[in-house]
């Protein structure tokens, strides 16, 4: 499976990762190689197999509807790159 640089750019956009132009080819090569590697799976007929999402055959546990979290905004925002008036700031979002 060979990925073109156009496809790599598209995936990079979906994943919001900037890739320098001079590195795109290398990524395309690496990714194509990995896809070739995983292509091995296709030889097997798995049409009658149930996919396994979790090792355990468990079902989701439910939590009672209680509020137990307190306001810790100061602590959490200590790590924030840019805050003002309690809000996280980002470049203006155009709708």
């Amino acid at each position: 499976m060979s990925l073109s640089t156009k496809e790599v750019n598209k995936i990079a956009w979906l994943g919001r990762i900037a890739i320098d132009d001079d590195k795109i080819e290398a990524y395309a090569r690496d990714l194509s190689g990995i896809l070739d590697f995983v292509e091995q799976m296709s030889v097997l007929d798995t049409s009658t197999v149930t996919p396994m999402a979790h090792p355990m055959d468990q079902t989701q546990r439910l939590r009672p509807d209680h509020v137990t979290e307190e306001n810790q905004r100061g602590l959490f925002q200590a790590n924030a790159p840019l805050v003002d008036a309690g809000l996280y700031l980002v470049p203006k979002v155009i709708e």
Partner: peptide, 20 residues
Amino acid sequence: LYTRSRGEGFGAEVKRRILI
């Protein structure tokens, strides 16, 4: 903000796996 923070903050192997 997104593309450069992630492009600069992640190393090559991480980026490869995210892309795959």
